[in-house]
Design a protein around this nucleic acid. Structure first.
Lengths: 193, 193
DNA sequence: GGCCAATGTATCCAGTGGATACAATTTTTC
DNA sequence: GAAAAATTGTATCCACTGGATACATTGGCC
């Protein structure tokens, strides 16, 4: 007896997140409208407010979810490769894949403005990047890394990937050059070669 | 007889740009409202539409202006320093200074969504980065650079700076670590220690 | 001096985020 | 098992925004 949609949706929160994710992916975070999401789901525009009091709360939730997915991808890249250089390359590729295939979401994740739940976003980011730092620590232990602070090196590496994605994202770099850029970046970071 | 503000503002376009710049600097591009800018200037909300048909046009104009200012700063950094390593450092510092002191504007400049005038934004960006490429070509000529494609090296360098600014921007990196990060990045890019 | 284009004004519309009072439903409690 | 309470969604406001259009004022050009 689930026809004629019951008064209670069931799991509105997840439905809203799914629809919002789709909208962001297709049209960007700026175009996201609470009302539109609500109506396409089939509820009043005020209904999602039970879960997301304001628009920014929804955006924050999307960002947290995004970092969670990114972290999983990075961890997976680490787990399915072995050896320092291979791991670095795998992580770099996974990171850039994510940022480019989910460009709008990435822009949202790294946006400046986060709402009351901004801490959660920050924690999500930290958790996502933890595998990277771990990798760099191992790299230093194996001597494959210069004797600098692995945390700093990791950050610079991260920054480089982030920047490459950004340049591709905003059109300064054509996607075709992407692999070459990764090669250059890796060469510079592996220290050797 | 300029009291009692004349019917014609005089140079509304520039006034709008100035006010919009201030708003973006203080509250970010997302908060920018054509109407608010118009009323604080003292004209009807429809008046600026003569110059900026839509909100996005104003944002694009701000981005173009931003790239122009950034380009000037980079060129200045190049002109007031000599020697490859010094120039690289000067440019990096100038670039990061700009991006951090004008964080909101930078976010706007590198945003994905540009309107009908998007080409102008792209050209502005290219013009701003021209001094950088020039510097890298010289660096290669002087042999201070590895024998890779200077264009690609420049892009990776650019990406790294961009990424560092982004990480600082979104709070992943505390500003205090900035100088150290720059040092690391420079060490990796100068190729020599 | 008078015409005409440029520049602002005055008003309208649809859509959005936000807030609040109210109704339907589920869960808890006795 | 029924009444009370908490949850979840609805219905309706408000202020504001971007956008569009018709109208008024001004300044330059002949």
């Amino acid at each position: 007896m689930k026809v004629a949609r019951p008064y209670h949706h069931g799991n509105l929160r997840q439905a809203v997140l799914n629809e919002a994710t789709a909208v962001v992916r297709e049209r960007g975070a700026a175009e996201l409208s609470l009302r539109e999401v609500a109506t396409t789901i089939g509820v009043t525009h005020a209904a999602p407010r039970r879960y997301f009091p304001g628009r920014q709360d929804l955006l924050d939730a999307l960002a947290v979810e995004g970092f969670s997915r990114l972290g999983a991808r990075l961890q997976d890249a680490l787990d399915t490769s072995s050896g320092y250089r291979e791991q670095v390359r795998a992580v770099a590729t996974a990171y850039l894949d994510f940022m480019i295939s989910e460009a709008n979401l990435t822009e949202l994740m790294f946006a400046t403005k986060h709402g009351a739940d901004g801490d959660a976003v920050g924690e999500g980011a930290a958790a996502a990047f933890a595998p990277l730092l771990q990798m760099f620590r191992r790299g230093q232990a194996e001597g494959a890394l210069s004797n600098r602070d692995p945390e700093r090196t990791g950050l610079v590496f991260l920054a480089t990937l982030q920047g490459i994605a950004g340049l591709v994202h905003c059109g300064v770099v054509p996607p075709g050059q992407l692999d070459d850029l990764i090669d250059d970046a890796l060469a510079q970071f592996s220290g050797l070669s």
